[in-house]
Design a protein around this nucleic acid. Structure first.
Lengths: 335, 335
DNA sequence: TCGTGATGGTAAAAGGTTTTATCAGATTCA
DNA sequence: TGAATCTGATAAAACCTTTTACCATCACGA
């Protein structure tokens, strides 16, 4: 119960208990310098016995490696951030790195506050992550004295960014629809001021060719409804497949089709984007959709930061990671 | 481009530039000790001019306050964690505290790894947060040498916990339904091995009295559908209001009612729980629901940790925070 | 002139670790 | 035997800050 009991054991304690000097203790524990195998074992055993764990602060102060990184995000609900953070964490935790999570709310003042705190803490690197690719960071990140990696956001071209390959995702969707025998494929998507929206739309157009049609709107179920109402009340040929810009739109589309008595997937196949499970699994029928592999994105960013912090150099520029297709029931024809 | 340029300015640099000793510089900057107003200003100005920021590592090493806390979570998708983390962060950032986010995945090995890293980093406290109230932490947290606060989780009774007041939330829902003239209120909820489910159900029963009926199932839309099908195909009086255990169930319920041609809110009022906006806003009609005030929960936890770390003592035990009602259209009768 | 008390400032220790340079002793080689 | 080399261990410096204890200096009253 005394103060003495609560204070952590230091390397001094180890050295004293093992009857060696502090430097020998340090060398033995870290395998540095020259140490007799026998003493090395003895020191290690003593250290374990008395429950010695090195003070990370002291170590970092000296080595100038804090083994911590900062993650700046502007995502309030965490739908995108948390899977990425999990990926980052996954590759870092075993290397003994920890991550500071900083919610900036897109507020420059807050961003600055967090950034300065991170710098004061001597973090080994910073990962910036956003909710859309083309949103610039709320604060200048490009001339920091430490490595910066962008995930789900595109930094300056001489920096390192990881983003989903939207074009690939769109092709995946269209090919899947074609393979299940659909020929009149419509694209209902979000606002065209999103670069991701434009990329997907372009890939869709390239892949579909003749007869491609893109309807831009917002990211809501309501827009899905509305678009279906509009498309199916006009004259002319009707689509037999719809590629949606995200799962919410897809859900609206599916509900609207059902309301009209149009069968999914028999009459019209529907495919989403995001694989946001709470939506995708609960549509009727469950939604086939494109997964952006957010966790993998995080892993790659973690790996990059790790390499940079270790002084290796990493190719700059934007890496586009392939998406994957999650097949459920809304397109029929699972092989 | 030299090393010299990239190295951060230290208090040495400030002292030299201001022509004072290191201790004077420190005293001037921190307002400790006795310093002449004139020198104090000069030192501060010099510090600002050369861009001095104290090294948090060195400071923490000495003061034994790292100004960092750890947040342990097992929530992968962040729906609950991120709003709470935002609350925590909100009250901490201005005090200069940062938070380590540690995703444990409910894996004891991972939890231990993270916990040890946090302890090695001398964090000032730990916040444990879960996805359900009655899930014990994947690792023993009760006899740590630093303060621990539980949020959305209940720790041992001599610890500090913040949870939503489920009973209050349930009463809020029932009273709202009663006030809009409903009398036959049914409760469709999740699995009864959740303590939150039982608390809400009990409060519901107390509040409704005669005729209360609780249907336990799982947290899915599907269960909402199924329950409605069952209830409306049996003989006898039908409910005119349904209190759902979460928003997903509520959405299933609303969809099922619409499928049956039963009007919401005219024939049956529906109220949800969680205020998970992506669901609640997109139901047709938009869902009136109970909000658990997750951010406030986080704020309170942050405040508690702050007080504990400052050595003040805080009442132990579980604090149940009131919920709030978010009125949309699914109960009609907005005043 | 001597004590007393305030004032403004400083040297040095402390915090816990890693690393460099050095040292004593043993071994090898000529 | 003496010099050179190797081995294992250590003292001390370094990282950057805060804090304690101490030291001049000056003014004041007796």
């Amino acid at each position: 119960m005394t103060d003495k009991d609560i204070r952590r054991r230091t390397i001094h304690d180890v050295a004293k208990a093992a009857g060696v000097s502090i430097s020998t203790a340090s060398n033995a524990l870290n395998g540095t310098g020259r140490t007799n195998a026998e003493t090395r074992e003895r020191v290690k055993r003593v250290a374990k016995d008395i429950g010695f764990r090195p003070n990370a602060l002291a170590r970092s102060l000296l080595t100038k490696r804090s083994h911590a990184i900062g993650m700046l995000t502007n995502d309030t609900y965490g739908r995108l951030t948390l899977p990425m953070a999990a990926g980052v964490s996954e590759v870092l935790v075993d290397q003994g790195l920890s991550v500071f999570l900083c919610a900036t709310n897109n507020d420059p003042r807050l961003a600055r506050l967090h950034l300065e705190a991170l710098l004061d803490r001597q973090v080994d690197g910073i990962i910036f992550t956003a909710t859309r690719l083309d949103l610039p960071p709320p604060i200048e990140l490009s001339k920091l004295p430490i490595p910066v990696v962008y995930v789900f956001a595109e930094g300056p071209s001489d920096h390192i960014s990881f983003v989903p390959d939207d074009a690939h995702g769109a092709r995946l969707a269209v090919e899947h629809l074609k393979n299940s025998g659909r020929s009149r494929i419509l694209h209902i998507t979000g606002p065209d001021d999103y670069v991701a929206v434009r990329r997907r739309a372009n890939a869709y157009r390239d892949s579909v060719g003749e007869g491609a049609e893109v309807l831009y709107g917002d990211w809501s179920e309501e827009w899905g409804h509305f678009a279906i109402d509009a498309v199916f009340s006009r004259t002319g040929e009707k689509p037999d497949a719809i590629f949606c810009g995200n799962d919410e739109i897809a859900r609206g589309v599916i509900d609207a089709l059902r309301d009209k008595g149009i069968g999914v997937p028999n009459d019209v196949a529907v495919i989403g984007f995001d694989n946001w499970e709470v939506i995708a699994k609960q549509t009727r029928p469950p939604l086939t959709t494109v997964d952006m592999e957010l966790k993998e994105l995080g892993r790659r960013a973690g790996l990059a930061i790790l390499a940079l912090a270790a002084g290796e150099d990493v190719d700059t520029g934007t890496t586009r990671l392939p998406c994957s297709l999650v097949v459920r029931k809304s397109c029929g024809g699972e092989l």
